[in-house]
Computed example of a mutant assay.
Amino acid sequence: MSLTGFFEGIQAFAEETLFAPFNALAEMELTNWWGANTINWLFMIICCVAIVYWMRKLVEHNAEGAERRDAISHGFLGKDSELDHKL
């Protein structure tokens, strides 16, 4: 088996297997515009719901007050750092 055959095998696998859903969507868009756009809107709605969920979790986390918000929350920014000695 040559190196060219190896890479052609990867190409064939990607085009026939991995890209099959994308090819199906492209063919559907040519035949049924409404169906293709419905799938896109479903994906956008799922993403919006996920963003709202994530933002609510961030608000809950901030309300707990468990996170340190002072400027020296990391050890390398503490009072013993070299930056404070230079000031």
Rank of each mutant, 00 (worst) to 15 (best):
N40V: 13
E8L: 15
L18E: 03
Y53S: 06
S73L: 13
M28T: 08
A12M: 13
E8S: 06
L77D: 00
A50I: 01
M55F: 11
R68T: 02
K86W: 08
T4E: 04
Y53V: 02
M44L: 08
N37L: 11
L83T: 10
T38E: 05
M55V: 09
T31Q: 02
W34K: 13
F22G: 08
N40R: 12
V59C: 07
A36Q: 01
G35W: 10
F7H: 11
A71K: 12
A71Q: 09
R56G: 02
T31C: 14
I45G: 01
A14Y: 14
G5P: 01
K86G: 03
T31N: 15
A24N: 10
W54F: 10
E64S: 03
I10K: 09
H85Y: 10
S73W: 06
S73M: 10
N32Y: 13
M1T: 05
W33N: 03
L87E: 00
V49E: 03
A20D: 00
K79F: 15
M1N: 09
D70L: 10
E67V: 05
S2V: 10
Q11C: 15
I39E: 08
W34Q: 05
L18R: 08
V59A: 00
F19Q: 06
I10F: 08
E15Y: 13
K57S: 04
K79Y: 07
H61P: 00
S81F: 11
N32I: 13
K86C: 07
M1G: 07
F7M: 05
L30G: 15
F76I: 00
F7K: 05
H85V: 03
P21C: 13
L58H: 04
G5Y: 11
E15A: 14
W33G: 11
K79M: 11
L30F: 15
W33R: 06
T38H: 06
D80H: 11
M44E: 03
F13K: 08
K86Q: 00
R56F: 04
W41D: 04
G78T: 13
A12Q: 04
I51L: 03
V52P: 04
D84A: 09
R69S: 03
N37V: 08
E64I: 12
N37R: 10
E67C: 06
N62H: 04
E29R: 12
F13E: 04
L77W: 09
L3D: 03
A63C: 06
F43H: 02
G5T: 07
A24W: 12
